[in-house]
Simulated scan of single mutants.
Amino acid sequence: MPDRRLVVVTGGTRGVGAGIARAFAETGDEVVVCARRPPQAPLDGVEFAPLDLRDPPAVRAFFGGLPRLDVLVNNAGGAPYRLLVETDTETDAERHARVIGLNLVAPLTASLAAYDRLKRARGSIVMIGSVSGTRPSPGTAAYGAAKAGLENLARSMAVEWAPDVRVNTLVVGMVRTELSRLHYGGEDGVEAVSRTVPLGRLAVPVDVGRAAVFLASDAAAYITGAALLVHGGGERPAFLDAATVNMEE
C-alpha cells in the first residue's frame, strides 16, 4: 500500500463529513470528498468531486476512474423530521423510501463500486451509522431503519469480504454542527440537549473523524464487522428520573 493513502468520504462537504475529511487530511492522507454540491468553504488538503450517490452508473464511473482506493467512508445521508403519518400533509411511502435509498442503498452502491480497488489495496470501509438505528426514532423512522440496516450490512460485508477488506461501523450520537439549530433549537436548546449526554456535551465533527481514522488505521488491523459507539455515553435511562426509590438507601 502506498505511504499516502487515498481516502474517499461521501457527503464530506459539511458537518460530520467535513470533520471526517479534515481528520484524514491531517494524518497526511490524500482525501477526496464527493457530493452533489461543493463545500461552502474550502477544506484544506481535501479535493472535491461532484457526484450524486443515488445515481448508480455515475457512482460506478467515479470509482472506476480512481487510480487506487485505500479507504471508503460512507458518510452521506440524513433525513428531515417527518412523522410516518402527518395530519397536515399528504405522506406517502415513496418519501420514506427515498430516505432509505440515500442512507442504505447509496452506501451499498458505493461499496460495491469501490470493492475491486479496496481489495487490491487490502483497504477498509467505515460506515457512518447512528444511534437512531439502535433505538426508536420517532420523526425519522425511515432513517433509523436505514441505519439499523446499514450496521447489519456492514457485518455481512465484513464476513463476505474478509480477509481482503475490513468493514466497520461508527454508531454516532448527537453531533454539534452548523445545522444543530434545526434539530435542537437555538443555543439554549443545544445546551439543554447536551445535559442529557453523560459526557455533558454533544460530539463535534472531529470526534467522529478521529474515530474513523482509528478504524481505518493499522491500529485496528484485527477489527472488522464491529460497531464502535461514538455517543458520549448514550442517553440516561428515563426510568432513573421517574423512579421514586431513594437509590442511596
Rank of each mutant, 00 (worst) to 15 (best):
M1F: 06
D3C: 05
R5K: 15
L6H: 03
L6V: 11
V7H: 07
V8G: 08
T13V: 09
R14F: 09
R14T: 13
G17Q: 06
G17V: 12
A18V: 09
A18G: 08
A18K: 13
T27M: 11
V32D: 09
R37S: 15
A41L: 11
G45H: 12
V46F: 02
L51A: 03
L51W: 08
L51T: 05
D52W: 01
R54L: 11
D55Y: 00
A61F: 07
F63K: 01
R68M: 10
V71L: 04
L72T: 05
G77D: 06
G77C: 07
Y81M: 13
T91C: 13
D92Y: 08
A93W: 14
H96Y: 15
V99Y: 00
L104P: 00
L108S: 02
R120T: 13
A121E: 11
V126H: 10
V126L: 09
V131W: 02
S132H: 08
G133A: 09
T134A: 13
T134Q: 13
P136L: 02
P138E: 01
P138D: 02
T140N: 04
A141M: 03
A146H: 04
A146G: 10
A148L: 06
G149K: 02
L150W: 02
L153S: 01
L153C: 05
A154W: 01
R155A: 14
S156I: 11
M157E: 12
W161Q: 08
P163N: 09
P163W: 07
V165H: 00
V165G: 02
R166A: 13
T169N: 03
V171I: 13
M174C: 02
L182Q: 06
D188R: 10
E191C: 04
S194H: 04
S194T: 08
T196W: 01
V204F: 03
V206P: 01
A212D: 05
A212H: 09
A219Y: 14
A221Y: 03
A221K: 14
Y222F: 14
Y222D: 10
L228R: 09
H231D: 15
G232E: 10
G232M: 11
E235W: 05
R236V: 15
F239Q: 07
D241M: 12
M247N: 01
